[in-house]
Design a protein around this nucleic acid. Sequence first.
DNA 1: GCGTTGCGAAACTGAGTCGTATCGAAATTA
DNA 2: TAATTTCGATACGACTCAGTTTCGCAACGC
Lengths: 203, 203
Amino acid sequence: MTIQEPVTARPAGRPRSEKAEKAIIDATLDLIAEGSGVSELSIEAIASKAGVGKTTIYRRWSNKEDLVVDALATLRAPLPPLAGESVRDDLIALLDVMRQETGQSRSRCVMNIVMGEADRYPRLTERFVKRAVEPRRTAMREVMARGVAGGELSPDLDVELGMALLSGAMLWYTKWGPAGDLPEDLAERIVDQVLAGLAPEPA
Amino acid sequence: MTIQEPVTARPAGRPRSEKAEKAIIDATLDLIAEGSGVSELSIEAIASKAGVGKTTIYRRWSNKEDLVVDALATLRAPLPPLAGESVRDDLIALLDVMRQETGQSRSRCVMNIVMGEADRYPRLTERFVKRAVEPRRTAMREVMARGVAGGELSPDLDVELGMALLSGAMLWYTKWGPAGDLPEDLAERIVDQVLAGLAPEPA
DNA sequence: GCGTTGCGAAACTGAGTCGTATCGAAATTA
DNA sequence: TAATTTCGATACGACTCAGTTTCGCAACGC
């Protein structure tokens, strides 16, 4: 054997265009960001927006749902850098990226799809959660575990419940809160209120 | 004037069937509960399911969105009876109806629509919020105000933030929580945790 | 150069939907 | 009874879209 085979032998013929592939994914996300739900998305609109023939899409994905699943899966969760000192500050940092994202139409609409069409397209949600939600959960879980170990949080704290309180509050504001941008100090206020509790301070 | 005119003079001809109207609304809600988003809903499917001609629908609503708006508006918020003694118990009662609702497909899917298609159909959301969300908010706000006044809650509490913590946590569980039914004591655990705070008890 | 494969554009089939119109029957008032 | 309005059913034209096929051209290995 003198000839080194490439690991994936390149088949004869013109190779598939990576540019086209990227354009298709991008057009899909853009249309979603403009407010399309999965069912309003049409392959024809995607092809047109991407400057691509329908053939090129169907050669890669066998149907619309597969395409959308792949498109959403390309979205990575941008995790903020965590100072790693104060648990409070790290929690604020984690919550604040949620707040910032609600101002971006792409994030907003993706969230809408995942929230609203979860039951109808389980594969979509499953994969999106794995890529975009799970990493954040893990990060927050680690921060809180650190807080429990280091005494900054209650030693018998139910960490999952604590995460639901923090994330849920921010989710609530993005959905039902006052119109317009969320206040810049919202993450801070949520974290402090959750840490302190609603009950009056024991005098 | 010897003849008393009815306030709304009945016009000649066959009167509109209330039964048909109810059947249309019901069919709409059923189709939504089966997982249809607004755009997947077709007037033809509604007519067929309701056992009604399309004409009968178009005579009452001029388009699909109007119909869906009316259908969702018929859903009233079932408010639990509040004992009015312990603020903690009342908050638990309020949260627990949220938990129970996630087990009902109709409530679940309506929630999905309102959450996921809010940006696309603002009129729909607006009206639904007024009918179904606002009454609960008001009830919870009153309970918390009572708690502040009565010393059960911190005197300088931001009531809106407190509501976001409680409702948001439950919302979070319904969306991202473990599959299957939510634990029966979830509302209780959320309320107690929120009241106490995550920070360790000051020794 | 030759064979192979991907490319975008366009045409096509078939299904589904909207909103309107028309039908004969039924329900109601006058 | 006559006039009016609604009823459910059905048909219609216009439109959108999915998914396939065909076309002539481009990009690659050999």
